[in-house]
Design a protein around this nucleic acid. Structure first.
Length: 850
RNA sequence: GCGGGCGUGAUGGAAUGGUAGACAUACCAGACUUAAAAUCUGGAGGCCGUAUGGCCGUGUGGGUUCGAGUCCCACCGCCCGCACCA
């Protein structure tokens, strides 16, 4: 056996797997199925370490399931529509489609050497017309069931990307991709009725036991359920009453004014013939929405002159103000302000000199509110000044419920439940996305395209020349002929919708498409029935809300439209969110105070090639601009895929970030080398030679099987790897005979095979294993071998470890007690006295209390 | 502001309430070598001691327990998510 050459054996075994077709997913009547999925990548054109870590984790699970007799589905595809392709076309010319497919080719080339157990026959990209054509078909079905609708709405407009963004895609007032300050515009747009499913999406979170609690909580907060009172204020001028929503109805007696949003219908009505107000509203709408802007934004108000009557006292009149901090999107867009018990209201009232009325005090304090509003926890008991429902002392919670009952009985209000979740706007004014299959006809209006006319394909060029991406805006709008079509209803000449779908639509059902990627319909129910749900989904925490919430909605919508079975209503049985791969950042001072970054390969022992010392910044997410990127391709060519796979799984728990270090990668490689040499050594042993400790090695082998398997089945990959290091050390020191050592190395190869599949295959072959290790049955630990005959028990005196004894594992407590008492340390501590108490935990510990 | 998480050697990190620091990196010593690398062997939480050994030790302070890194309370620090949501 020669030296360990990763490049040689990796290519060899990848070919062998390919030839044997062992990763092709096939339905089987007699095997349990297992569907493992990693969040598919955007084809940026470059594989990064984050991908390697993500796919390796999925691969470890897929390979382990294959070896434990499952029928495994482990597919890969590309989330291929989106802005970067169009941006690239704008920046460097060319066509988004060419750019995207060339990137996909490159990434597949980079992925294949990793030796992932993927069923490549199922691969697709969301920009394949076979895929987005089916998506258009889904859209039409959703439309028919009322799951999609069109409305005029104030939307988030990204002025850089020149497109609309969903609320979920606005982060801190900026576009999630462009980072541009989002503006507000009123446009007619398509929306998914996700808000109809607020309660359903919320309550079903409880069934997702194998999702991280953090993700469930984030979704819960995002859906934002609240209970409160809704009621109307009568206007003194007799016009339409103003409906408000409040979660603190118990503070109604502290009402100071009624506030409405700058986007409230009344604001808009008044704006028409009031230039001063119009200017004020413009100012409000422009207001930046960055965190700093919100924190420091002054409370702005405008007195409309309108007066309303307090529902409990018709003589009590409240002024109606337009206030910049009231959102039209939440509740009714109108509130009553209680400055004594809300800081925001208080700030506003102090500024505009409106009354502040205390409605309750702390039990031990009756100081009127001055600078800070008194906002106790809802569970805290407080004392009411004069509560209309007759309360004197009660918690906020009780007071709220009492008030809602009171209002409902009196007939002036009702308890309602509100959600923060709003409908998902899906229209995007872009070229590189799935065209929305509807037609605008002058006589028939907006008409869905006929299914037989699908797919509505994106035009590749116009009049034989590539579409022009050099000007901003939507190229579909500018295309000379693409919009022209016949009205599906009346046949008259009509125009296509030029908006395309949000790319999050593409990723909301790809997992279902993988079960039948070539079907003539969006899914094949028989295949979906067999393969769904995804048993294990793995991806980044950054998709905790957007992608995962949308997918949950889509699964419901697809179930309603007959594209998924009932059981797939929650499509991901288990979710795992993995951490990032990080690296130190190396920098030297540059001109005008800006640091100059250096690539890891240019730095040795903290110095550049010319001897300049670099400053080392602690580990951070790998990013091109900080130059702290390690390219998987160069790692694979230097050490091999097995080393990269082994290293990204070792050291850190999978859910946490792992720091890439050159020494760590080298250590991983050294270890694989060591295992290879061990295999070599055992192969050269005298077959008949007797050794010592065969039984001990066998025992250790079974313990390793047990521990490593437990780790693999519970996302304890780092623990499994640590255990494998330990077992390798044991084997290396063993003096056992050939048979025992051979069994140990073959088992070691099997236990390592999900992580280092190529090396494992090679060892298996060298030791004369049957068939491929990838499909060899996973070893099973013999329970009897896991228990030692004798155990070492620590002896504690008053909880401090003082001695240890070695006793047979099955010795009864009384015997153990006797031996423990006889130890020198215990005798010394007792000094002739009787112990107060002795605790014997069998197989664990003995504690003597003196 | 609201919600959640985390604080363990020089470093990444292990530890169903039961011997804290597994495993690995970095480090130190030794073997092999002319030498280095590679490889192999060994050491190592801190303090005291030649040593048997002793004391201290999981952010800080308290509590529960025979026994606490782990459970409870308060505080300090860091990280993440949401946020003018009525």
């Amino acid at each position: 056996m020669a030296r360990y050459s990763a490049s040689e054996i990796e290519a060899k075994w990848q070919e062998a797997w390919d030839k044997a077709g062992i990763f092709t997913a096939t339905r089987s009547a007699d095997k349990p199925k297992y569907y493992v999925l990693e969040m598919f990548p955007y084809p940026s054109g470059k594989l990064h370490m984050g991908h390697v870590r993500n796919y390796t984790m999925g691969d470890v699970i897929a390979r382990h399931k294959l070896a434990t007799g499952h029928s495994v589905l482990h597919p890969m595809g590309f989330d291929a529509f989106g802005m970067p392709a169009e941006n690239a076309a704008m920046a460097i010319g060319g066509h988004p489609k060419d750019w995207t497919y060339s990137n996909i080719d490159t990434m597949v080339e980079q992925m294949k050497p990793l030796g992932l157990s993927l069923d490549w026959s199922r691969m697709f990209a969301t920009c394949d017309v076979e895929y987005y054509g089916q998506q258009q078909s889904l859209f039409l079905d959703f439309l028919e069931k009322g799951l999609v609708y069109r409305k005029n709405a104030v939307v988030n407009w990204d002025p850089v990307d020149m497109t609309v963004l969903a609320n979920e895609q606005v982060e801190g007032g900026r576009g999630w991709r462009s980072g541009a300050l989002v503006e507000r515009r009123e446009l007619t747009q398509w929306f998914f009725k996700i808000s109809d499913y607020s309660e359903e999406l919320l309550s079903a979170l409880d069934t997702l036991e194998n999702w991280p609690a953090k993700v469930r909580l984030m979704q819960e907060n995002w859906i934002g359920k609240s209970r409160g009172l809704q009621f109307a204020f009568e206007r003194t001028d007799g016009a339409e009453p103003i409906t408000v929503y409040t979660t603190r109805p118990d503070t109604l007696n502290g009402a100071s004014f009624v506030g409405i949003s700058p986007d409230h219908p009344i604001s808009k009505e008044l704006e028409a013939d009031n230039p001063e107000l119009a200017a004020f509203l413009t100012e409000c709408r422009k207001g930046g929405t960055t965190e700093e802007a919100i924190e420091t934004a002054p409370k702005l108000g405008y007195d409309t002159g309108i007066k309303v009557k307090h529902p409990l006292n018709p003589d009590w009149e409240l002024p109606v103000w337009i206030a910049n901090f009231i959102l039209m999107d939440y509740g009714t867009g109108a509130i009553f302000a209680c400055p004594a018990h809300d800081q925001r209201d208080l700030d506003f009232c102090r500024k505009y000199d409106l009354p502040v009325i205390d409605t309750f005090f702390a039990l031990d304090n009756d100081t009127p509110v001055s600078k800070d509003a008194f906002v106790p926890l809802k569970s805290e008991k407080v004392r009411w000044v004069d509560h209309f429902a007759g309360l004197t002392e009660a918690t906020g919670e009780d007071a709220i419920n009492t008030t809602i009952d009171f209002a409902e009985k009196a007939g002036w209000g009702e308890g309602v439940t509100k959600y923060r979740l709003r409908d998902w706007g899906l229209s995007r004014q872009r070229y590189w996305g799935c065209p929305i299959p509807v037609v605008h006809c002058e006589s028939c209006g907006v008409v869905p395209e006929k299914k037989e006319n699908l797919p509505i394909e994106l035009p590749y060029d116009e009049d034989g020349k590539a579409i022009d991406f050099s000007v901003p805006g939507n190229p579909l709008d500018r295309h000379p002929t693409w919009r022209d079509c016949a009205c599906p209803t009346c046949g008259a000449p009509a125009k296509r919708e030029t908006d395309t779908m949000d790319t999050f639509v593409d990723s909301s059902w790809y997992f279902a498409r993988f079960t039948a990627p070539h079907a003539e319909t969006p899914t094949d129910m028989a295949e979906a029935e067999y393969w769904m749900n995804v048993d294990q989904y793995i991806g980044g925490i950054e998709h905790a809300i957007l992608h995962l919430l949308y997918s949950r909605f889509f699964a419901r919508a697809m179930q309603i439209t007959g594209h998924l079975p009932d059981k797939a209503i929650e499509p991901f049985d288990a979710l795992f969110t993995q951490g990032m791969v990080t690296h130190e950042i190396y920098q030297t001072p540059g001109d005008n105070g800006r640091p100059v970054y250096h690539l890891p390969e240019d730095v040795t022992d903290g110095k550049l090639a010319d001897g300049t010392e670099v400053e080392i910044i602690p580990s951070a997410k790998m990013s091109k601009s900080k130059k702290n990127v390690v390219d998987p391709v160069s790692i694979i060519s230097a050490f091999g895929a097995d080393t990269a796979r082994w290293f990204v799984l070792s050291d850190s728990p999978p859910e946490r970030d792992v720091e890439w270090t050159a020494s760590g990668a080298e250590a991983a490689h050294k270890h694989l080398n060591r295992v290879w040499n061990l295999c070599d050594k055992i192969g050269a042993m005298d077959v008949d030679a007797k050794g010592e400790g065969d039984d001990d090695l066998l025992r250790e082998t079974h313990k390793a099987i047990h521990d490593v398997t437990v780790g693999l089945e519970s996302f304890g990959f780092n623990a499994s790897i640590a255990r494998l290091y330990g077992f390798t050390n044991t084997l290396a020191k063993s003096k056992a005979g050939h048979a025992a050592q051979k069994q140990a190395i073959m088992t070691l190869a099997q236990l390592m095979s999900p992580m280092t599949p190529h090396l494992s295959e090679d060892i298996w072959a060298h030791q004369g294993g049957t068939g491929l290790i990838a499909t060899a049955p996973w070893p099973v630990a013999d329970e009897a071998m896991l228990v030692d005959d004798t155990v070492t028990l620590p002896i504690q005196i008053n909880g401090k470890r003082r001695a240890e004894i070695s006793v047979p594992a099955d010795m009864d407590k009384a015997e153990v007690e006797k031996i423990a008492l006889a130890t020198h340390a215990v005798q010394k501590a007792l000094d002739g006295a009787q112990p107060k108490k002795i605790i014997v935990v069998p197989g664990r510990i003995v504690n003597v209390v003196v």
